[in-house]
Lab assay of single mutants.
Amino acid sequence: ELREAFAKVDTDGNGYISFNELNDLFKAACLPLPGYRVREITENLMATGDLDQDGRISFDEFIKIFHGLKSTDVAKTFRKAINK
């Protein structure tokens, strides 16, 4: 299930999730959020999830993000976006 969610976000299939891919995910989900809020959520996920600070999120980092977000608003938003 997590591998499928990761693949859905990794639209270019390079094995990593970029800032733009995350941002595009939230935009495509048509969530009722202003653009600046989408950017804040994306920046927050990148800042906390990109553990090796290479500017992208690997599958291992994605798993840690996903499990670390349990019930936060960001987690709910992220799950809604993935499930669209």
Rank of each mutant, 00 (worst) to 15 (best):
D50Q: 13
G55Y: 13
R39L: 05
G49E: 07
V9Q: 02
V9M: 08
H67P: 05
D52W: 05
Y16G: 01
Y36F: 09
L69F: 08
G13Y: 01
F26H: 01
K70F: 15
N44R: 10
Y36K: 14
D60G: 07
I17F: 01
A75N: 12
F19T: 11
G13I: 00
I41N: 01
A7F: 09
Y36S: 15
E1D: 15
M46T: 13
A81R: 13
G55T: 07
E43R: 08
D10K: 00
D52I: 05
V74S: 13
K8V: 04
N14W: 00
L31I: 14
D73T: 13
G35N: 13
K27F: 03
T48A: 13
V38A: 06
F6R: 00
I57A: 00
S58D: 04
T72V: 08
G68M: 15
D54I: 06
A81V: 12
A7T: 13
L33K: 04
F26L: 14
K80S: 13
L45V: 07
A47D: 09
I17G: 00
Q53C: 13
A81E: 14
P34S: 06
E61L: 07
R37S: 09
P32R: 08
S58Y: 08
L2Q: 03
D50F: 05
H67C: 07
D54S: 12
I57R: 00
M46E: 09
A75P: 14
R56I: 04
D50T: 13
R3W: 05
K8L: 12
L2I: 02
A5H: 03
H67Q: 13
L25W: 04
L22T: 00
D10V: 01
I65D: 01
A7Y: 02
I17Y: 01
A81S: 13
V38I: 14
K8C: 04
I65P: 00
F78M: 13
Q53T: 11
L33E: 11
A28K: 11
K8D: 04
Q53V: 09
K70V: 10
H67G: 08
N23M: 09
K84F: 14
L45D: 03
A28V: 12
I82F: 08
T42D: 03
F62N: 00
L31C: 11
F59N: 02
K76G: 12
L25E: 00
S18V: 02
A28T: 07
K27Q: 09
I41K: 02
E40N: 02
T72H: 11
D52E: 14
N44P: 03
K84V: 12
I65F: 05
N14G: 02
S18P: 05
A29D: 07
R37P: 03
R3L: 06
K70P: 09
T11P: 05
L45K: 04
A28R: 07
V74G: 14
E40V: 02
R39V: 05
L33S: 05
T42Q: 09
G13Q: 06
K27V: 07
R79M: 10
G35F: 07
G55W: 03
S71Q: 13
T42A: 11
M46H: 08
N44V: 07
I17T: 01
A28Y: 12
R3P: 01
I63Q: 14
G13D: 07
K70C: 12
F19S: 05
D50G: 11
A75Q: 13
L45N: 04
L45R: 03
G15P: 00
A75E: 13
L45M: 10
G49S: 08
R56H: 06
R3K: 08
F26A: 04
F59Q: 04
E40H: 02
S18M: 11
L45E: 03
K8H: 04
L45A: 09
T72E: 13
N83M: 04
R37C: 09
S58P: 02
L22R: 00
D10A: 02
F66I: 10
F19L: 13
L22C: 02
P32A: 06
L69M: 10
A29R: 03
I41E: 03
L51T: 10
V9K: 02
D24N: 08
N20C: 07
T11V: 13
T11D: 02
K64I: 03
L31Q: 10
D50V: 07
K80T: 12
N20M: 07
E61W: 01
F26T: 01
E43G: 05
A47H: 10
L51F: 09
F6D: 01
K76R: 12
F66T: 07
N14L: 05
V38K: 05
C30I: 05
F26W: 03
E61K: 06
E61P: 00
K27N: 07
V74F: 09
D10E: 01
A81I: 08
T72Y: 09
V9Y: 09
K84R: 13
S58C: 04
L45Q: 03
T77D: 14
K80A: 11
L33N: 11
A47M: 11
E21C: 04
K84H: 12
S58E: 02
G35I: 04
G15K: 01
G49W: 06
D12C: 07
N23K: 14
F62V: 12
C30S: 14
V9C: 01
E21T: 03
D24G: 04
L2F: 05
D24P: 01
A5R: 00
L25G: 00
N20Q: 11
K80D: 10
D73W: 06
R37E: 07
A47N: 10
P32S: 09
R79D: 15
E1K: 06
L22F: 02
P34I: 01
L51H: 14
N23P: 15
A7E: 09
T72F: 11
G68T: 13
T72S: 11
D52Y: 08
T77H: 10
D60V: 03
N20V: 05
C30K: 15
I57D: 00
D60Y: 04
A28G: 05
I41C: 03
D52F: 05
M46A: 13
M46R: 14
K27C: 05
L25P: 00
T11M: 05
G55R: 07
A29G: 07
E21N: 05
L31G: 09
T77S: 13
I57Y: 05
R37H: 13
I65V: 09
P34V: 03
A47V: 07
G68C: 13
G13M: 04
S71D: 13
S58N: 09
I41V: 10
K70N: 09
S58L: 01
I41F: 08
L31M: 15
S18C: 09
K84N: 12
G35H: 12
L33W: 13
K64T: 06
D60C: 04
E43F: 02
N14M: 03
V38S: 04
L25N: 01
L45T: 03
N44L: 09
S71G: 10
L69P: 06
E43T: 07
E61A: 10
N14D: 15
K27D: 07
F59S: 02
A29P: 02
D12T: 07
N20W: 04
Y16V: 03
S18R: 09
D12P: 01
I63S: 11
D60Q: 10
P34K: 04
L2V: 00
K80V: 09
F78S: 15
S71R: 10
L25M: 05
I17D: 00
G55M: 06
K27W: 01
T48G: 11
T72Q: 12
G15L: 00
V38G: 03
P32V: 04
G55C: 06
A29H: 06
I63V: 15
G68E: 15
D54V: 09
C30F: 05
V74N: 13
F66P: 00
P34E: 09
E4K: 12
E21M: 05
L25Q: 00
L33A: 08
F6C: 00
V9G: 01
N20L: 06
L22H: 00
L51I: 12
M46D: 05
I57F: 08
A81F: 05
N83G: 14
K64P: 01
E4S: 07
E4A: 10
G15A: 01
K76N: 13
D52Q: 14
T48R: 13
E40D: 06
A75H: 13
I65L: 11
L22S: 00
V38M: 10
F66H: 08
E40T: 04
L22Y: 00
L45H: 02
F19I: 11
G13N: 13
D24L: 07
E1C: 06
I57V: 07
E61F: 01
F62I: 11
F78V: 11
L45I: 08
I63N: 12
R56K: 14
D10C: 02
D24M: 09
L69T: 07
L69S: 07
D73G: 11
T42E: 08
E61I: 09
F62E: 00
T42L: 11
K80R: 11
S58Q: 03
G35P: 14
A75V: 10
T42Y: 11
S71I: 14
